[in-house]
Design a binder for these strands. Sequence first.
RNA 1: GGAGAGAUGGCUGAGCGGUCGAAAGCGCCCGCCUGCUAAGCGGGUAAGUCGGGCCAAACCCGGCUUCCCGGGUUCGAAUCCCGGUCUCUCCGCCA
Length: 426
Amino acid sequence: MLDRQRIRENPGRIRDASARKGSDAPLDEFISLDAERRASLTELESQRAEMNRASKSIGLLVAEGKNEEAATVKRQAKALKDAVASGDDRLREIEARLHEVELLIPNPPHQTVPDGDSAESNVEVESWRSKPEFEFEPRPHWEIGERLGILDFAGGGKISGSGFIVFRGLGARLHRALLNFMLQKHTEAHDYTEVYTPYLVNRDTMTGTGQLPKFEDDMYHMERDDLFLIPTAEVPVTGLHRDSILNGEDLPIYYVASSGCFRREAGAAGKDTRGLLRVHQFDKVELVKFCSPAESYNELETLRKDAASVLEELGLHYRVTLLCAGELGFAAAKCYDLEVWAPGVGAYLEVSSCSNFEDFQARRLNIRYRPVKRAKPKFVHTLNASGVALPRLMAALLETYQKADGSVLIPEALRPFMGVDRIQAD
RNA sequence: GGAGAGAUGGCUGAGCGGUCGAAAGCGCCCGCCUGCUAAGCGGGUAAGUCGGGCCAAACCCGGCUUCCCGGGUUCGAAUCCCGGUCUCUCCGCCA
């Protein structure tokens, strides 16, 4: 959600920005509704002021015992009441429509975001180490996993359907080890506060971070309770400070949360879906920051480094791309993708999106802070990054550390969490 | 799931048809006092929005809205009535 005044004063700018994102935001409707709202608000308020004055004088007249005069004013007030009521209904209707429309306007991209409408226009900004060399043909993780008996795709399909996965034995332990490794890193080395949140959230929370109303089809929805399964911990963690005024001295606030993530992946059927590449349920460690507007772009850079440090410690080759405007999410102003190299699949896998939402989510969620004591509250900036998504990380890890004999070496950093230094077939 | 209690400003908490945007206290801010500090004294301290004071920011003035949310009664609702949400207590159920 954008500052209404910003749209009002610069509709052309916002229109261009939406176009860069490839969005057909209903700006004309917004502008006319906004004008209509302000006109009827002014009118209604003057009517209401008149009525308030009348009511107040009745109170005074009654107190003075002038009952006949009070009765006269009462009759006048009754007439005013109807005018106010109808004006109020009209305003409410306009406001509701205006709000619906404003929720569909995307966050404009930051000026450093390149133009473009496909992944080809993304800009690689960094690359860490190089692709590992193999003396044999590296296998994809689904082959490695099934040969070792640690990934059970059939089991997931049987109990839930395609796109659901079962980890077994050391595979399940590797899953747990990776989560613990990442959580420990972010809490101890990077000073994030760990939180554990609900996996089911209400409609308001889902709207606050921008998933609703546009992307309802991508979400699992519990109709009976009108609750949604979270697609990322970003949703509950960012929602944590909804409707509050934070103390400026407490900023920045850093949170890390490990959670299950649930995505219907409607429309993505058949695309990069093999193995662990695209599943309906996966675990992810998420980093979320709340900070002042002046700091948010610095925070974005450190956020990205914090997320990438996971890959570096695990010795996995990755690259960082700056997303072009057309690839940028609805709510983000700027976003880097972290892509880890999976030698078996022969592709870079997106394991983290590091985004600055500026005040877009904060406005929807009404999260503000006081820069200094007694100052007016301002909206915070919110950021988040995966640190990182688990299945694809595991895929890259299995493929990078596979050996000719089919076993997989466990990287040094992970051994304390695994208890073994290698996974091999029984 | 059943029964009961509650929801008021940054916090605690009073108010239970009119002058209440709301007592009092805490916290915070400004000032006074005092070698310094503490204490004391005086004052100020909710948010949003619209309009005006200047074009913008700060600030000031005025209107409107907001005492969990929605609806109703009334000229007038924090206060009365109805519905809902959440919190707490007890019972039931349950990992």
